[in-house]
Design a protein around this nucleic acid. Sequence first.
DNA 1: CGCCAGGTTGAATGATGTCAAGAGGAGTGG
DNA 2: CCACTCCTCTTGACATCATTCAACCTGGCG
Lengths: 236, 236
Amino acid sequence: MTVKARHGIPAMKVGSADCRSCPVRKLGLMGPLATSSTEAIQACVDVLHFRAHARIYSEDTAGSHLYSVRSGIVKLEQDTPSGRTRILRLAMPGDTLGLELMTGFRYKHTAQALRATEVCRIPAVLVRELRESSAALRESLQIHMQRTVDAAEFQIAQFCTGNAQSRIARLLLHLAPEDRTDGRRWIMREDMAALLGVTLETVSRTISDMKRQGMLEECGHAFKFRRGDLERIAGS
Amino acid sequence: MTVKARHGIPAMKVGSADCRSCPVRKLGLMGPLATSSTEAIQACVDVLHFRAHARIYSEDTAGSHLYSVRSGIVKLEQDTPSGRTRILRLAMPGDTLGLELMTGFRYKHTAQALRATEVCRIPAVLVRELRESSAALRESLQIHMQRTVDAAEFQIAQFCTGNAQSRIARLLLHLAPEDRTDGRRWIMREDMAALLGVTLETVSRTISDMKRQGMLEECGHAFKFRRGDLERIAGS
DNA sequence: CGCCAGGTTGAATGATGTCAAGAGGAGTGG
DNA sequence: CCACTCCTCTTGACATCATTCAACCTGGCG
C-alpha cells in the first residue's frame, strides 16, 4: 500500500462514471466527445472517491490511468534534491492528472488528495485510441496540456515570488472565487508551506499576523476577507 | 520597436531554413516530418539571428509564429504582480517557443535572447494545417508540450527551492554538460537572479564565496568546477 | 480521560534584501 | 592613444525576513 499509515483506506470506488451528471463535464478532458461515444466510454471509466491525504498515484511508478478531477483538490508533488517534498501545483475540478502518460509510461509526480476528492479514472489506452479517431479529443488534450503549463507557470509567478505575506494572500485569492474560501477547499498549514516554499511556522505566524491586523478571519475551515485588502498585499 | 533602446537591432534574417543542416533537427518541432514535405515547409520558415538581450516577442501581444531554438538560450519571462520581471524558464536548442498559439492567440511571455541566438520562425497557420494531415507532427507537438511542462516543473523543483548556494549550484550543473559551462552559454548575474528568485547581490556574493572556497573558477565567460562538489551542495 | 495531530508562539540564529559606494572592462569619440 | 561613459560585477553595513528548535495550546476521538 502506497499510503502513509496514518491515513487509512486510500480510495473507494463509487461506481461507473455517469457523465451526464458530471459537475465539470464541460471542463473535463473527455467533455467534448459526442454523446454517442460517451456510453462506450463510461463502461471503462470509474469514479473514485479519495479521502483527505489519500494518495492517488506515486512518483516514478508505471501508470496506466489518467485522472479527471470532479471535486476537491489534488496536490502534485515531487521529492526535491534536499529531501523535502515540494508541491509543484494544485489540480482543481476539471483538471486532468497524468497527461505525461501520453508521451511516457511513468507518473512524474505523487498525486495526493488535499481533502475529500472525487476523480474519474480513465484508462490511458482508451485515450490513446480515441486520440486517433477523434479530432475533438485531440483538441481537448492540447487544451489540457496547455492548462497544465499555465498552472505550473502560475505557481512560479505567484507562489515562488515575494515575501510570505504576499504569497499567502495570493493563495487565498486563488482558492476563493469570492471574499471567502470554501470550507470544502481547506488546505492545512503544512501543505500551504510546501506549496509556497516556506516553513509551516512562517505560514502560521503570517496568518496570525493578518488576523490580528483585521484583514482575515477564520471560521471553522473557511477564511473570510475583503479581496481588496489581500490584493493590495499580493501586489508588493 | 519592442526592444529596449540600449540593445540596438533586435533581429537579423539569416535566410530561409535549411533543415538538412539544422544542428537540432531531430529535436525540433518539425523534425519528424518526412523529407518530402520538408521542402515545402522551408519556403515559409525563416532563420533569424538575435543578438544578446534582443526581444523575440512580447507578453500579451497577438502572435502568428512559433519559434524553434537552433542555438543559444532564450529566457521566457513575465511581469510579476510586484512589478519585477520573473524568468519562468529557459529555452535551449531544440525547444519550441509560442506553443500557446495552438490554443490561443497571444503570447503568454516575453521571450528574450540571453546571448546570441538563432531561431527558426514557423508560421502558426502552417503548424495548424500540418496538424490536421500529419500524425507525426501531432506526436511531435505533444512531446514538445510535455517538454514545456517538464521545464516549468524543473524550474519549480530546482530553482525555487533551497538556499541561494544550492540554487546556483543546480543552475551551473544544468547549464554544463561536463565540468565547465560553455562560454557561449553565458548568463549574467542579473538574469541568474531573476531565474533563481533572489537578488543580483546575493548571486554575486554567493558566487564569490564559492570561488573563495575553491569550488568554482571563472575564466572569461565560462565557469569551471568539479561536478561532485556542486552536486553535494545542490542536494541540501 | 488521555492521546495526538494540527496549530500557535517565543527566542535565537542564519540568510537574504536593501542601499550605497566603488572597481574593472569594453566601447566610443576626441 | 587617452579620457570618458556605461555596464557589469563586487563589497560593506545594516535592516528585515525566514528558519530552527522548542514549548505549549486546543479540539477531536478512541
